[in-house]
Amino acid sequence: MSTHIGPVDVDALRARLDRATTAASIAGLDGLLVTPGSDLRYLIGAGGSSFERLTCLVVPVGGTPLLVVPKLEHPGYAGVPTDELGVEVATWVDGEDPYALVARALKGTRHAVSDMTPALHALRLRDVVGGEQVLAGPVLRELRMRKDAAEVAALRAAGAAIDRVHARMAEWLAVGRTEREVGADVAEAIVAEGHAVAEFVIVGSGPNGASPHHDLSDRVIEAGDVVVVDIGGPLPGGYCSDSTRTYVLGEPRHDDVWRTYAVLQAAQAAAVGAVRPGVACEAVDAAARDVIADAGFGEFFVHRTGHGIGLDVHEEPYVVGGNDLPLEPGMAFSVEPGIYLPGRWGARIEDIVVVTADGVESVNTRPRELVVLPA
């Protein structure tokens, strides 16, 4: 069942729908089909997930938007300002064909379907709508990549909330505890500090820190361990945090930790310093990657430098080699180089930054040095 995600600016939502319609027309589309997920949140302020019953926002070019929703789930949309947005609503009950409702609202032969639409619905829509279906992502990401002032404020709030969790890490991260025990406490704190949910908690201690997407395990944290803590999630309004800091319990076990970490810190600073309007995403990636490679650790930096963030933790733009997209004010993304030494230890530093009119703003302000906690 979908849920409204909090106070919304009706004028802002109406402008988004208008821009989406215009962008669809420019792309040669006859309409958009948007199922529950972050695209639907962006356009009408409704959260939720897709289930076996179809919910779909139909945005025809040159027509009236229509929200097709199961009657039993309609109460979950009570807070969505459909009347003010000029969105008609059509409910359906089990035994009726919701896909036919969508088809009747469409004109033309070329439509875009939101990227995360389950195959269960995408294939049925294809069958009844006919013509050509393409992904809506290339259209909607052009709107969502450029955050407005309210979205940037939401990301600042998310950054401050996750910073408060990192500031408390000494409460939980200690020798003799398992990663899973630490992770449970951190997840509870993420919610206590203002998030709707802890979407992810990575506590990678010792050799587990060399796996960038390590989750949690029953490994007991030991004195001298380097520990990567990557945490985040959405605030009640839907906008997400994502921040990584690296800790060490007492004196590092490995004698190369301080020298290697200094390289990583320089790489992260170089990448953040490269961010400004007009710079290509790939140039920001190169700014971090070159520092790491020049120090002899190139093969141990095994992922892109960053990903966009907003209503999704991972969205456009991606800060990666080969992406020549120029940065523009309002674009928000992570800057998170890492160095991972298999079987030994790893480290990552991650901030969320926003491109400003003349440079960059970081929404995370915690120290980026290797944080030493008591052993």
Rank of each mutant, 00 (worst) to 15 (best):
H4N: 00
V152I: 14
T117N: 06
L123D: 13
G306V: 09
A15R: 15
V34G: 01
L29H: 02
G343W: 12
G63K: 10
G224V: 01
R168S: 13
A100D: 14
A158C: 03
L54N: 08
I202V: 12
V128T: 13
L370D: 10
T91I: 05
G359W: 14
K71S: 10
G63C: 12
D9K: 00
L17P: 07
L54E: 08
L155W: 01
G308Q: 03
A295T: 08
V354D: 02
E132P: 00
V61Y: 06
P374F: 13
I26M: 11
A375Q: 08
Y99L: 03
P207V: 08
T244H: 00
G76E: 06
G224A: 02
R348P: 00
D30T: 07
I339E: 10
L101G: 04
E350H: 12
D9Y: 00
R245E: 04
N208W: 02
G343E: 07
A288H: 08
E299A: 15
P7N: 00
I352E: 02
E142H: 11
A223C: 03
E282L: 01
A158K: 02
L40I: 02
D230R: 00
D94W: 08
V34Q: 04
Y42R: 03
H314I: 15
P81Y: 06
A223G: 07
V129D: 03
V102S: 04
M169T: 15
V139N: 09
G79W: 01
A223H: 05
A375E: 13
A160F: 05
D358E: 15
V291K: 05
A112V: 07
Y99E: 04
G159W: 09
A119I: 15
A174T: 12
K147C: 06
E222G: 01
L85C: 05
P70M: 02
A189K: 11
A267D: 07
D97S: 06
A266K: 14
C56T: 06
D148G: 06
L135H: 10
G278S: 09
A161Q: 05
R289H: 10
